[in-house]
Every structure is written in structure tokens, then in C-alpha cells.
């Protein structure tokens, strides 16, 4: 009897002590939130034929990623092109430097792959909106590369229509930083994102390397920061169609 009571009480303590999925998801978003940032990123895309392509761009963000302006630096084919995303990629404008034309894209365009990589426009510039669109359940613990993690299973909230039908997120136990995310679409296991080489940059935890593996296509994209700073202030005017054409 004593033994049963002990087990029962321990279980209750453990369960009560465990953070909920939504709490952990919220914590993960907060830990990655930054007011402003300016970075140069390099994406190396491994194609199905094994060829490597490189994409380099400058990215500016504000309001915790709700506004993002990206300007392509390489390759030559897209140099000077730019992309502006606002309101968590609900409003998207694309600028073509060869034609000097700005086009407004509808939000469905965020499903498209970013320059042929395994990241979609939504992945690149969605802002941290997991808590708006998903309900998370804490499914216990696991390990990613030997690091203890919480495992969350996230399903879309009612009346929300995110691009992915399910996410499984592994959050580092020590600080809820995401280390691995599995993306599912229409029941199919689509891709996995690994966040690696996490460093403290100006007080903000930042994954210096992100690897997206596409299990459907057999491709892989590695994204790295060449430079990044959070000590920057960007005006509202900066994130405008006018600035896209500069």
C-alpha cells in the first residue's frame, strides 16, 4: 500500500511539475524573439542530382520577425532582387531588379520554396507564430544528438489553416530552444529542420547553422549566418515597398 501511494504521489508530482506543451511552445518563441536583427545568410542547397547551389542574402527583421526584408546578394541571376514580408508573411512583395517591378503576392505564395531551397517563404519569414496556429502537447522527453529535450506534438488550432498539418518539435530542456522540428503535410512526413551550433550573440541564443532535410525530394539545404547583429534599430519606413526598390 505504501509503495502504491509513493508511486502515485511521485507520478502526480512529476505530472504537475511538467510544463504543458503550450507553455513550452510559448517559451520557445520567447527565447527566439528579437526586436530587430540584421544578418547575412548563406544557403547551400544540395539538389537531387547532388549539385550544390549557393544563395546569399541580407536579411533585416523587426517586431520579432513579423516584418522581414531580404535582399539577394548571390547568385548573379537573382542579385538585387528583394522580398518584403509583413504581418507574419500575410503580405508579401517581391522586387525584380532586372525589370524594376514590384509585385504583391497573395499569402498562398508563402507555400512556395524559397529560391528552390527546402525552406518555404513561410519558413523564412513567418515570424514566430506557432502559438497562434498550433496547439502543443508535451509528449515527454527525448534526445537530439545526446541533448535532453522535451518533445512537443503540435496540431493546427480550429479555424486556423497553417501550411503544415503537424509539427513535432524537440526543445532543449535547459532553455526550451528548439533543436529539431519535423514537418508534416497531409499526413506525410515532409522534412526535418535541425538547429545547430547555438551561440549567444549579443544576449540572444542563435542557431548559427540550420539544416533542412527534405525526405520527399531527397534534398538538403544548409543555412548559416555569415554575420548577424541584433543591436540595430530599423524604422517603419524601412519595411516599405519604396525601400524594396533601393
Amino acid at each position: 500500500m505504501k509503495k502504491i501511494l509513493t508511486i502515485l504521489i511521485s507520478s502526480i508530482v512529476i505530472l504537475v511539475g511538467q510544463p504543458t506543451g503550450n507553455e513550452l511552445l510559448n517559451k520557445a518563441e520567447n527565447i527566439m524573439d528579437t526586436e530587430y536583427s540584421k544578418a547575412v545568410l548563406i544557403q547551400k542547397i544540395e539538389t537531387t542530382s547532388g549539385k550544390m547551389r549557393t544563395l546569399k542574402y541580407r536579411s533585416y527583421s523587426a517586431n520579432n520577425g513579423k516584418k522581414i526584408l531580404m535582399r539577394y546578394l548571390e547568385p548573379a541571376r537573382v542579385r538585387g532582387n528583394a522580398l518584403l514580408m509583413k504581418n507574419n508573411s500575410k503580405d508579401i512583395w517581391m522586387y525584380n531588379s532586372r525589370t524594376r517591378r514590384v509585385r504583391k503576392l497573395a499569402s498562398h505564395a508563402k507555400r512556395r520554396n524559397f529560391e528552390g531551397s527546402d525552406f518555404t517563404y513561410e519558413d523564412m519569414g513567418g515570424g514566430r507564430k506557432w502559438t497562434d496556429e498550433y496547439t502543443a502537447k508535451n509528449k515527454g522527453e527525448g534526445k537530439v544528438r545526446g541533448t535532453p529535450c522535451f518533445k512537443l506534438v503540435c496540431n493546427p488550432k480550429k479555424n486556423k489553416n497553417p501550411s503544415y498539418s503537424k509539427l513535432i518539435i524537440w526543445l532543449r530542456k535547459s532553455d526550451a530552444y528548439p533543436l529539431k522540428i519535423n514537418y508534416y503535410k497531409n499526413g506525410k512526413f515532409l522534412k526535418t529542420l535541425f538547429m545547430q551550433n547555438i551561440q549567444n550573440i549579443e544576449g540572444i541564443l542563435t542557431a548559427q547553422k540550420m539544416v533542412m532535410k527534405n525526405h520527399q525530394e531527397g534534398t538538403r539545404t544548409v543555412m548559416k549566418y555569415d554575420k548577424i547583429t541584433y543591436n540595430i534599430k530599423l524604422t517603419k519606413r524601412f519595411f516599405s515597398e519604396r525601400n524594396l526598390k533601393q
Binding site: 497573395a106 505564395a109 520554396n113
Partner: peptide, 10 residues
Amino acid sequence: LDYTFTNSLY
């Protein structure tokens, strides 16, 4: 009008 489907068909 334009639309992108979930399978990337535009």
C-alpha cells in the same frame, strides 16, 4: 486571379 496549391502548383 492566381493561386498556389499545397503541392506548389501555381
